[in-house]
Simulated assay, not measured.
Amino acid sequence: MHKLNIVLVEPQIPQNTGNISRTCAVTGAALHLVRPYGFEITDKHLKRAGLDYWDKLDIFQYDNIGEFFRHNNGEYYFFTTKGKKVHSDVSYPADKAVYIIFGREDKGLPEKLLAENYEKCVRIPMRDELRSLNLSNSAAIACYEVLRQWDYPDLGREGKLRDYRLD
């Protein structure tokens, strides 16, 4: 089945969402956006970061996190600096829809949601004295770890150089 979903809960920075939309487009992951946003979906910065890929996206929008959970079934993984497992130590099932969920840039995911799903909370290792990675970098790291475990389904694995003749 191999269906990867990236979920952004209350994203605040349009450039991050634009970059993540581009990651989704090139990998085939679906993008789920949970309101409220810190920008308008038509914001020029959002489109600038992923405009030429916007029509290639599977994108879904929800009014709140409850609506997201009512409409989606699968395996949920909550990315947080408070996670007890390292993201690359988790086995992401290939036979179910997988949702990698990220919170707002300034606050992360709600503590109550993390506490209710603590066994599914994962973190990307980083130095303890620093706050966190950039959201779009975190989403790309997580996305490619899942795809690596699935052996990069439907993705090109070999590039091709143009024929340069040196005379």
Rank of each mutant, 00 (worst) to 15 (best):
V9P: 01
H87C: 12
T27M: 08
H87V: 13
G28N: 10
T17P: 01
D58M: 07
A140K: 07
L130T: 13
V86N: 13
N137Q: 08
Y152R: 04
K96Y: 05
V146R: 02
L51I: 13
W150T: 06
D167I: 04
P125A: 08
K56M: 02
M126G: 08
C143H: 03
C24Y: 06
F39T: 06
L166H: 09
S21H: 02
D95C: 04
D43P: 00
G83V: 02
R70M: 12
H45Q: 14
P11D: 07
N16G: 05
L109F: 05
H32V: 11
Y62M: 05
R157L: 14
N72S: 01
V98K: 00
R35N: 15
N16K: 05
T23R: 02
A115F: 01
G103S: 08
L113M: 14
K56V: 00
K3H: 13
L4G: 05
V122P: 00
G38D: 10
F69N: 01
Q15R: 12
E67M: 09
E119Y: 09
V9E: 15
T17I: 07
I6E: 10
I124K: 06
R162F: 13
V26Y: 02
A94C: 10
N16H: 08
T27S: 15
V90Q: 14
I41H: 06
L46N: 00
V86P: 00
E158A: 10
C121E: 03
H45Y: 04
C24H: 07
P36F: 06
D43Y: 03
E129V: 13
V146Y: 06
N5I: 04
K3V: 06
T42S: 14
L155T: 09
L51C: 09
R104I: 00
C143P: 00
A97P: 09
Y37E: 04
E116T: 04
Y164E: 15
P93W: 02
E111Q: 15
Y77K: 08
G28I: 02
K82H: 12
L130F: 14
R70Y: 11
D106K: 12
P110S: 08
L109E: 02
E119P: 03
I124N: 05
A142Y: 08
R35A: 15
S136Y: 07
R165G: 08
G74A: 03
R48M: 09
A142S: 15
T17D: 02
D95H: 12
D95S: 12
E67Q: 15
I65W: 12
S138N: 07
F78W: 11
Y62H: 11
P110H: 06
D154R: 09
K85Y: 08
D154K: 12
R157V: 13
I100A: 14
Y92V: 09
I101Y: 03
N117M: 10
Y152S: 07
R70K: 15
E67A: 13
C121F: 02
K120A: 09
V34G: 04
S132G: 05
L113Y: 04
